[in-house]
Design a protein around this nucleic acid. Sequence first.
DNA 1: GGTAATTTGTTCGTATGTATG
DNA 2: CCATACATACGAACAAATTAC
Lengths: 256, 256
Amino acid sequence: MSGPQFEPVRTVRAYERVVEQIEGAIESGALCPGGRLPSERELMVQFSVSRSTVREALRVLQARGLVRSRPGDPNGAEVLPFTPAALHKSMTTLARVAELSLGELVQFRMVLDAAAILLAARLRTEEQLEEMAAAVERMKEAAAVERMKEADSAAFSAADVAFHDALARASGNTLIQVCTDVVRSVVVDLIAGRIAAAPDQEALMRRSIAHHEEVLAAVRAGDGPLAARLFRRSVYDYYAGYVPEEERTALQALLE
Amino acid sequence: MSGPQFEPVRTVRAYERVVEQIEGAIESGALCPGGRLPSERELMVQFSVSRSTVREALRVLQARGLVRSRPGDPNGAEVLPFTPAALHKSMTTLARVAELSLGELVQFRMVLDAAAILLAARLRTEEQLEEMAAAVERMKEAAAVERMKEADSAAFSAADVAFHDALARASGNTLIQVCTDVVRSVVVDLIAGRIAAAPDQEALMRRSIAHHEEVLAAVRAGDGPLAARLFRRSVYDYYAGYVPEEERTALQALLE
DNA sequence: GGTAATTTGTTCGTATGTATG
DNA sequence: CCATACATACGAACAAATTAC
């Protein structure tokens, strides 16, 4: 006869229990963004742990982007609205320690943004189309400056981001929106320097604007597959030069 | 004449500096997985901060999945190899606090896995094909059991996961591999209960096996677009019943 | 505007359980 | 078994920051 099936006990740290409870309260909605946690001293009473333990728990919650605490705040730590910051951090870490290649990242971007475009071509509203058109206009203005400065270059990039953000929102999928944003910024972080060092900034911008207009037109026309194809092609053209040759074939596989 | 452009100073906590330095050492490769950090007492000397500060920093690093510390370990905290645990955690949190719908998650899965399939159809090796075929065989064995038990159901799921994991690896893109894994498990976590409560487990499994065989055949034949189409269709058929009607149109947009 | 009260950031000391040799 | 070094956890204390009166 077999006895009761005992299971190995996982020793769980005190601070983890605190994290679990607070995290649960936030995820269940008992604590809403903008709401406040009790003060550290109050928490140490409620959980009956020391302040150090409470603080370690708060640091973890802060690292996960769930709360923020400021010195001297009489109201205790603030519950934050969701931000993709934690997701961004983990993906950046992934890119670094798992040594993600630029090729893999660009490939991922081609996939995600193309999906967003495919969906946006069906679901976009008129306002979103106008938003994208306005972003393209801002790109043009920034590129039209006679003697390009850093500020203009930044304005161009900001308009570019705004375009893709509107596009991602038009997809109607929050996850796609967040992930496209994260991946785009990770890619940009990786090669911002090399792009800035490119000799013919103006030509790059003009090409980029033309591509954006093509994609926008296809989205407006409701032709998702065409828009996605155009986008993938333009991303490939833009980044292929920075991707080592042996990785380029994998990128080309997405061009059909 | 405008003076020097001063910028607002962001007060940075002591423990953050510690985190930055250790994180940098890991990301730069100065600290390798399996390697050890100095002991907490040694760290407080090197950073000239107190023990509590060191511990708060270690908690953050632990929450990010970079290190692990055990009581009594004479070697200090261990540097961990990369795991997608942190990414998984942030995406789960995203799903909960941003209230991601099942529809959005399924849509994301259709996009990512389809991309993996598209790439795998070009880049897969013979061994990977065999691996997938073996996984399908295990699915068949698990489904062939007369009186289904939990263990068989678990074996079926495990084989299913193994199939998709091999597929994702065959894509040659680490990021796609990790993200498909994360999204799949998040989706499963969300509706495992409802799937298990479905009346006709056997029929579901048979259909699933048939779909997997179709996809595998198309991948083997190198027809990525076909394989991707078949996959999206099967995912849609499998999950559509659990997705509210108003979200289904968005899913259908991916079926072409 | 200034002052007091409260809170967080940080330090230090200590006790306890645990893993290694 | 013992000694050592370690992480875990507690508690008291001070400094710096914020709010409220």
